[in-house]
């Protein structure tokens, strides 16, 4: 059962990723990205990381994909490249590079699989079922990783200020000066 779900989620995630790359229309690309992200959230549930799965759906599906779709609509940039440009030597080399990268990382995984013994940690599936995924992440986040958590809030603030500066603060100033 678990294996069937893994192949459904994983297969759809890969199909979504491929469709995203090879789609001419940017809106369709964004929707295929959404499919891929949702399927990855399903994989997180299989790995008993329910909290991360919900956060994945909220942050990626709820925020990032919507943001991308808004920008696609604003710019009217839904049309991608012209199709005859696709089959070039350059693109062939790029696909080849991606395949080489896949081979290298796949070999690394294979080596790891047959050379190491897994270390047994303290957090088992039973503990997660007992205490809850969000509680365990929260415990870790607010004790051991409190400083990175606070730094993330500063990062978000910097991001907000940067986006406001980039996206039209000048025009607001113009308008005020014009009055």
């Amino acid at each position: 059962m678990e294996a069937i779900l893994f192949f459904i989620f994983g297969g759809l995630a890969v199909v979504g990723g491929l469709a995203m790359v090879f789609n001419k229309n940017a809106v369709h690309s964004a929707l295929f990205l959404l499919l891929s992200m949702t399927m990855i959230a399903g994989l997180y549930v299989l790995l008993s990381a329910q909290f991360i799965a919900v956060a994945q759906i909220m942050v990626y599906a709820g925020a990032i994909v919507v943001l991308i779709l808004f920008v696609v609509m604003l710019l009217g940039a839904e049309l991608g490249e012209i199709i005859p440009q696709w089959l070039t030597v350059r693109n062939g080399v790029m696909v080849l590079l991606a395949l080489i990268f896949l081979t290298v990382s796949g070999t690394a995984v294979y080596d790891w699989l047959y050379s190491t013994q897994p270390v047994a940690g303290t957090v088992t599936d039973e503990l997660i079922a007992q205490q809850g995924s969000a509680e365990l992440v929260g415990q870790s986040l607010f004790t051991q990783y409190l400083l990175p958590f606070e730094l993330a809030s500063i990062l978000l603030l910097v991001g907000i200020v940067g986006v406001v500066m980039l996206g039209g603060w000048r025009f607001v100033q113009h308008r005020e000066r014009g009055k």
Partner: peptide, 24 residues
């Protein structure tokens, strides 16, 4: 899972090199 992640990462890396549309 690691192999699946490697496949997804390669698709993403290939897409970055292949596509010309900055949004994609």
């Amino acid at each position: 899972y690691l192999l699946l992640a490697a496949i997804l990462f390669s698709i993403g890396a290939g897409g970055v090199m292949l596509r010309r549309n900055t949004l994609v």
